[in-house]
Every structure is written in structure tokens, then in C-alpha cells.
Design a protein around this nucleic acid. Structure first.
Length: 260
DNA sequence: AGCGATGTTCGCCG
DNA sequence: TCGGCGAACATCGC
């Protein structure tokens, strides 16, 4: 599921369900999801509580005592909270059992997600070269982040070292709403286009959060509901096209997003 | 049966 | 150094 709006939705879910409960048991059904030794992971968290969480891009950092647990969701991550083990979802990989009899399931169908323990958040962000959070960045941070970027617009938006949080689907939507062709060289965009792009990044991501990342519910005026073969542009009613960029498939409207 | 999927990372090449 | 490209990771559904 997860780009920024989905991870923000997970954050709100975790904050409203899983804080301030002592972790009594951790069950790891597939250790490949852990970026560290399973014993170390458990040692760091057992008898601790999740106190608060912080999201940066697609990363969710959950604080316990003086460390953080990093939840990364890959392409198919999810979480689920329940008071009954029988509710265990398919592809649940790690289960946190709390002292109030509830469980938090970390789900990852394709095992592209990762859990880790982070002792120094600032150092981790620096090490990963994580760009400013796409939702929370200021205009100044945005301008600094994109300085001298010459790659195509879609690739730059999806580069987590430039701005963090935007993935394949939302980059398409943002470029669609801004009227920029996905292959436009970033450093050819005008000041005006950049301002409009900045506004639309915020607007689209906020809308996604408001809709809890449930793409099926998105307004038909968005590109997202039309991202399939035979899709029709909601603005001009012409055909949506699919192109390969950055090892992914992007969708755009050649009429509303002309090549410059 | 084969392809592709909301992500990240690495190696190769220009 | 940057950027484009392809592959790899692992699984499932269309």
C-alpha cells in the first residue's frame, strides 16, 4: 500500500491503538523482515512501550524509551490491531503482544518491508541521505532539495534522497495536476511551474491522507482512478498513456502534460 | 503460464 | 558525480 499518505494513515492507526502498552511477547514468523538479528530486536523491545511516533517520508519511526523502531512497508506492507490472535491476517510477519491482551500485526506480503532498531535518528537520516518530508517541507527546503537536479521530473520526485515520501502513483498524480510531462528535465522548469508543483505536492498528499490512501475512493477528477489501460483523462477526455520511467510504469495525459 | 505490482538497492555504462 | 537502465529481492493475483 504505502506511499506517504498510506504511511501517515498507518501512523495515525498506530498512535490510536498501540501506544503506552507493555510489549510482552514478540513473535517473528519470518525473520527476513528484520534488518537486524532477531534476538537483538526482541531484546530492545520486550518490556518496553511504544510512546510516540514520527513519520519521515515512507518511514515510520516509533519511539520506545531511548530508541526507535523503524517500520518500513515496502510495496505491500500493512498493520492491524486486534484483541484476538485468530484475527491474524495473512502474511503477518511480526506480532507484538501487549499486556492488555491486544496484538499488533505487521503485515508484508512480498517481504519488501523492513523493521529495524534505530538508536540515533538524526544519524540514520543522514546516513540514508533522506530528503525532507514531502508533506512537511517548507518551500525553502523544497527549493534547496531540487537544486541542480537534471533528471526527469518523475524520477526526481520519486527519489527519496531529494524529497521523501512520493512514490510511483502519487508522482503521476502530482505531475498530472501540475500539467508537467513526466520526462520533463527538472532543471528546465520555470519558477512558476516549481511553485505550482510545490503546492500540488502538498495538496495531493493531504487529499490522500484525508482519504486514508484508499485509492478506490479518490475523486474521478484525479488521474489515479484512470490509471489503467483504456483510461480517459478526466480533464480533456483524451486517452491516458503509459510509459516506462525509472524502472516503473507511469501514466499521464499527453495533451494536458505536453512535452516541453 | 507469464507478467506486473503503492519500494529500495546495487552494479554497469555513458 | 550524476543519471539512465536493468536486475534482484519474494509473493500473489489477474
Amino acid at each position: 500500500m504505502p506511499e506517504l499518505p498510506e504511511v501517515e494513515t498507518f501512523k495515525q492507526y498506530l498512535d490510536s491503538t498501540s501506544l503506552h502498552q507493555v510489549i510482552k511477547v514478540i513473535s517473528v514468523s519470518d525473520p527476513r523482515i528484520l534488518e537486524l538479528d532477531e534476538a537483538e530486536f526482541k531484546k530492545a523491545l520486550l518490556q518496553e512501550q511504544f510512546e510516540s511516533s514520527e513519520r519521515i517520508g515512507k518511514n515510520l519511526f516509533v519511539k520506545t524509551g531511548k530508541i526507535y523502531v523503524l517500520f518500513h512497508f515496502g510495496m505491500t506492507g500493512d498493520m492491524f490491531y486486534s484483541d484476538d490472535l485468530k484475527d491474524e491476517p495473512s502474511h503477518s510477519r511480526v506480532i507484538f503482544s501487549f499486556d492488555n491482551g491486544h496484538y499488533l500485526f505487521y503485515i508484508s506480503q512480498r517481504l519488501f518491508g523492513k523493521l529495524n532498531i534505530i538508536t540515533d535518528l538524526k544519524a540514520y537520516i543522514k546516513d540514508k541521505k533522506l530528503g525532507p518530508d514531502a508533506l512537511n517541507m517548507t518551500k525553502e527546503e523544497f527549493k534547496t532539495a531540487i537544486k541542480r537536479r537534471s533528471g526527469n521530473a518523475k524520477t526526481v520526485l520519486m527519489n527519496q534522497e531529494v524529497i521523501s515520501g512520493i512514490g510511483n502513483i502519487y508522482s503521476d498524480e502530482i505531475l498530472f495536476q501540475t500539467g508537467i510531462h513526466p520526462k520533463t528535465k527538472f532543471n528546465t522548469l520555470s519558477e512558476e511551474q516549481l511553485s505550482y508543483l510545490f503546492e500540488n505536492i502538498k495538496k495531493v498528499l493531504k487529499y490522500g491522507i484525508q482519504e486514508k490512501g484508499i485509492l478506490e475512493n479518490y475523486s474521478k477528477t484525479y488521474l489515479i482512478p484512470h490509471r489503467d489501460k483504456g483510461g480517459i483523462c478526466p480533464k480533456c477526455k483524451r486517452s491516458i498513456e503509459r510509459i516506462a520511467i525509472n524502472g516503473r510504469h507511469g501514466f499521464f495525459c499527453p495533451h494536458c502534460q505536453p512535452e516541453s
